[in-house]
């Protein structure tokens, strides 16, 4: 006799179970972490000290604040640095802390000083870790198969670069940053390339998640057919990637400030919702999936 295992809500029923603990605030922390570190990395290469500062502040206030609000015992946050040898959260806290120290120290120095470059390079390395560690954190959880894929850190990295590039374009068009001619020509094309790359990664992620076992399939169904399908296809994919891509192609490199602001908002909405929804559709396997009655 076959057994059909349902997705359950009730406490005393066996079945697939959605995770409920990581949602809005964790998604916000991931979002601010990736956008801030992406902006910081991009600003170092341009270079723009204001961009670096804004990137640091987004990570410090946005990511740090969201984590602080989320913790059950926020004043014990410092304890989270205790086990970097095995925990990606600990590694992330270390990376974030060192990025802040090195980043602000670099900004306090004149550009030509002997310590400026080593501190900046170190801060960029830490920012890169901040951008991708969420992906490794999710991958390290064996309990939720849809997260347990090598594409997760790659997706985090590309979303971070996309968020950073979008923010740079926004700040440039709003008059907060000045780019050299070379970068003025490169950045819109980079944005287009990153949008296409992100769209491809999301498609690959979805294809891969079909074959991540029964719980992964439940997650996939929730995301593309279930209650999260509408926000996923409209906000994460439609607004965040397709609309942004079409607008970027249509507007071209000489888009007006209003158009760039619209593209930025659309991109950030998509960025937030894709990770929010991926957290929401996390499904645990049933404890006794093997049980045949």
């Amino acid at each position: 006799m076959g057994i059909s295992i349902p997705l359950v809500e009730k406490e005393f029923v066996a079945g697939f179970r959605q995770q409920k603990e990581w949602a809005g605030l964790i998604a916000s922390a991931f979002f601010f972490g990736k956008v801030g570190s992406g902006l910081f990395i991009m600003s170092v290469f341009l270079p723009s000290r204001l961009g670096m500062l804004v990137g640091l502040l987004i990570v410090l206030v946005g990511k740090g604040g969201a984590h602080f609000l989320y913790l059950g015992r926020p004043w014990r946050f410092w304890r989270g640095m205790a086990r970097p040898q095995s925990s990606w959260i600990a590694r992330g806290i270390w990376a974030m802390g060192l990025m802040m120290v090195a980043g602000f120290a670099a900004l306090s120095l004149p550009v030509g000083s002997s310590l400026y470059m080593p501190l900046t390079i170190f801060a960029v390395i830490c920012a890169f870790v901040v951008a991708v560690y969420d992906g490794f954190l999710l991958t390290s959880s064996p309990a939720i198969p849809i997260w347990n894929t090598a594409l997760m850190p790659v997706m985090c990295m590309f979303y971070s670069f996309l968020g950073g590039t979008t923010m740079v374009l926004f700040m440039t068009h709003m008059g907060f940053m000045e780019l050299s001619e070379k970068f003025t020509a490169i950045l819109p094309n980079l944005e287009l390339g990153l949008l296409v790359a992100n769209l491809l990664i999301v498609i690959l992620f979805l294809i891969g998640s079909i074959n991540t076992g029964s719980a992964g399939r439940e997650s996939f169904d929730l995301l593309v057919k279930g209650p999260y399908a509408v926000p996923f296809f409209s906000l994460a994919i439609g607004v965040g990637l397709v609309f942004t891509l079409l607008m970027s192609i249509y507007a071209g490199p000489h888009a007006s400030a209003g158009t760039v602001a619209l593209i930025t908002v659309a991109d950030l909405i998509g960025h937030y919702f894709i990770f929010f929804l991926l957290l929401k559709v996390g499904v645990f396997k049933p404890v006794l999936g093997f049980l045949k009655i």
């Binding site: 995770q19 913790l71 059950g72 014990r76 989270g80 205790a82 086990r83 959260i89 600990a90 959880s141």
Partner: peptide
């Protein structure tokens, strides 16, 4: 995954939580 070391293992195989070390990040939960 526990970043604080609040979750630890005893020699007799018991996995326990030190309440004073847990910061409530819920990484263990997921």
């Amino acid at each position: 995954v526990c970043p604080t070391g609040a979750t630890y293992k005893r020699e007799d195989g018991l996995v326990l939580v030190d309440h004073d070390k847990c910061m409530g990040c819920r990484a263990c939960y997921v």
